[in-house]
Amino acid sequence: MPYPEGHKEKVRGKIIESAARAFRTNGIRDISVPFIMKGAGLTHGGFYAHFDNKEQLVAETCRYAIGDTIAFLQKAAEQEKQRPPIHVVIDYYLSQQHRDSTNFGCILPALSSGISRSSEEVRQVYTDELKRMIDFIADVANIDYATGSSLLSSMVGALMLSRSVNDPDMSDNLLAAGKQQAKALIFTQESVIQ
């Protein structure tokens, strides 16, 4: 009996979601295809019916995860009416909740260190998705691309460092300092525009 229409796309989506959770938490190198398939509730043998190799999965997961992060941050910024949208984005991105929820957070901190050893295809997708994220940040903040690049770099770096240390107070301080600097960068840019 054939599968219902859309079954293959649904299964592929489950694999990508499982990969996104795994890569966000552990990066690329330490995650195996069997681990990803188990996370999707599937057997390892079915992987190649959906992807040519792990590199293709990494590329598609990068697209999915960045889109997911942008959608979440956009929704949060639109719902908050009391503060400038970029402040909402900064406050969430550099929050304890985001730091501690690695399996659902932004994938950039997890992939950044390992992506340089990936294939050109994966690096191109990562580059395109990073540009998309910078465009989103620059648009929400109403700043130029270069300042958006600096702002996102600062936010990703602060998040990475806060996740890396084993001292909870230092981790919280890194987040607080990151928020302060990110908002100061926006304020400085706004002052230059005026």
Rank of each mutant, 00 (worst) to 15 (best):
A71Q: 13
L73R: 04
L73P: 10
Q74A: 12
Q74N: 10
Q74S: 13
K75C: 05
A76D: 04
A76G: 00
Q79Y: 10
K81D: 05
R83V: 09
R83F: 08
R83K: 12
P84V: 12
P84I: 12
H87G: 09
H87F: 13
V88I: 07
I90Y: 02
I90W: 03
I90A: 02
S95T: 08
Q96A: 15
Q96Y: 08
Q97G: 05
Q97I: 14
H98E: 15
S101V: 00
S101F: 06
T102E: 11
N103H: 14
F104Y: 08
I107P: 05
P109L: 08
A110S: 13
A110I: 07
A110D: 02
L111T: 08
G114R: 01
S116I: 15
R117H: 12
S118C: 15
S119M: 07
S119V: 06
S119W: 09
E120C: 01
E120G: 04
V122K: 01
V122I: 05
V122A: 08
V122M: 03
Q124W: 09
Q124Y: 10
Q124F: 11
Y126K: 05
D128T: 11
D128H: 11
E129D: 03
K131S: 01
R132Q: 09
R132D: 05
M133D: 01
I134Y: 02
I134H: 02
D135T: 07
D135W: 04
D135V: 03
D135N: 08
F136C: 04
F136K: 02
F136V: 05
A138S: 12
D139T: 15
A141T: 04
A141N: 02
N142E: 13
I143H: 01
I143K: 01
D144V: 09
D144T: 08
Y145T: 10
T147V: 14
G148M: 06
S150V: 11
S153L: 13
S154H: 14
V156W: 02
G157L: 07
G157Y: 09
G157N: 09
L159G: 07
L159P: 12
L161M: 15
L161S: 12
L161F: 15
S162Q: 05
R163Y: 00
R163V: 01
R163G: 07
R163C: 02
S164Y: 07
S164M: 13
S164T: 13
N166H: 12
N166I: 07
D172S: 15
D172P: 00
N173A: 13
L175Q: 06
L175V: 08
A176H: 11
A177V: 13
K179G: 01
Q181T: 14
A184P: 00
L185Y: 08
